[in-house]
Design a binder for these strands. Structure first.
Lengths: 257, 257
DNA sequence: CGGGGTTGTCTAGATAAATAGACAACTTGA
DNA sequence: TCAAGTTGTCTATTTATCTAGACAACCCCG
């Protein structure tokens, strides 16, 4: 995801230290994760030895070990006594975002296995900004919380809002079908398009970390999106939090033809 | 950027603790930043008192104070003895990404003031993946590092690659014009389009934190993009790191007409 | 079959972060 | 003016993190 000047694994500046609010081993772990996610270290590659890492980052070997232990707990690397620490693999999924973004079919080759699970649904007065975007007259909306997993990994957590008058039974349809597209079709809507998407990033909250099986302080990619009918009538407002360490958003631009 | 169940500022779960690699005050600071960035706390609003925050997060008052001090150092809040701590303001910019993404004109209303500064430029053998995307035959490429600021704030850091044969003088043109669009026009290219954009997020490296004036451990939004001629011939490969706390990416979808 | 190099584990000590309590300085509203 | 409530500052103590060194267990190659 990033280039680095100079040789991939050398010339590393010592970690920022003391007073940052981040422990040394955490910062080292994140740096190593960069090398793995960024493709400078591939599955099967051996990491630098603990002594080399300790010297490079200017810390004790035990501190470097703790960084490796954190990555090992995530399943990103595997240590073998006597021989070294190796990258086990990294599954970064591409989530496609475009005019016809679909939750269950956008995860690349393995997309077929993506499934949606409904956590809960409530009828409520939508927050004012949501009501405005959905064009709600009386603010009554159905809010549904869902999670999505693929290939045994938690991918994202979403909050959906639908117009209660237009789609009173959307929650049960979502539960039954496990798909937004199918649930909308069951409500008589055969096609819809993505009107707008805004992307941000921040640290995960405690509950998001729990749902997505992330370590504390992990990063989430946050998208806020509006789906509409082809004629522009708002259907669904949607906030999705993706586990940034597992997902990249692949933005589809219309072709110039 | 996120909704929270229940009342905006109550029902907060205690911070994840001890062993996470994140100090308590850092996690609290990030939670408070969420309330500000997310619009639950507006400029001029008073934060809960230090005692309330300490109790809510299950920490000592001194720890809560340290979180506030971190936000104050960023200029996000301001403490006044005897009266409280107040939100000074938060400027989140929208960076538009679409078919005709332009670096100097995409920052919303205030976009006109965005300026690009060239840090350095070198001629090098492009990394293999970059060479492949640019369709380089002999891998020789011009790499340019730039920063972009707007309204007195650092917005992003970018790494550009151009085909050396096609655009030998792009670096000097960039320096002179301060704009990719203008530099390309000076090279006889009047129009270009965005072919692909991939978005991720991760912690900032030490050098990125320095260039973007971020605290250690801040988050960057990372986009990898390819610009081409309207007929699809690759022009520029581009990796941009945005300060996530100041920028949201606004994705433009083609209209269904 | 060595022997150098690697990870795993233990002990001990030094440094940093968080807790605990107290009180001063200041603001606000009754 | 006064009292309650707020932030600022200080000291002391406890807890967590990092450092330091040593050695065992194990792998791999010559």
């Amino acid at each position: 995801m990033n280039q680095r000047q100079g040789h991939p694994l050398t010339d590393r500046a010592p970690v920022a230290r003391s007073g940052s609010g981040y422990s040394a081993w955490r910062l080292i772990a994140e740096e190593l994760r960069l090398d793995i996610d960024g493709g400078r270290l591939h599955a099967g590659d051996r990491l630098p030895t603990e002594n080399v890492l300790a010297e490079r980052f200017g810390v004790n070997r035990h501190t470097a070990r703790q960084a490796i232990a954190a990555l090992a707990e995530e399943g990103l690397v595997e240590s073998r006594r006597g021989s070294g620490t190796f990258v086990t693999g990294h599954a970064v999924r591409l989530h496609r975002i475009g005019l016809r973004t679909r939750m269950t079919s956008s995860l690349g080759d393995e997309g077929a296995s993506a499934t949606i699970h409904v956590l809960n649904s409530v009828v409520e007065d939508a927050p004012s900004d949501v009501a405005r975007r959905l064009g709600l007259e009386f603010r009554r909306a159905v809010r549904v919380e869902t999670t999505r997993s693929a290939g045994g990994q938690q991918i994202s957590v979403s909050t959906h809002w639908f117009d209660l008058e237009r789609l009173p039974d959307i929650a049960t349809a979502l539960r039954r079908t496990g798909s937004v597209t199918a649930a909308l079709r069951a409500s008589g809507i055969d096609d819809y398009v993505r009107a707008s998407t805004v992307v941000g990033a921040r640290h995960a909250t405690a509950s998001e970390s729990e749902l997505l099986l992330l370590g504390p302080g992990a990063i989430v990619l946050v998208t806020e999106a509006l789906d509409t009918l082809p004629d522009g009538v708002p259907l669904q407002y949607l906030i999705t939090r993706f586990a940034a360490q597992r997902v990249r958003l692949d933005i589809e631009h219309a072709r110039p033809d």
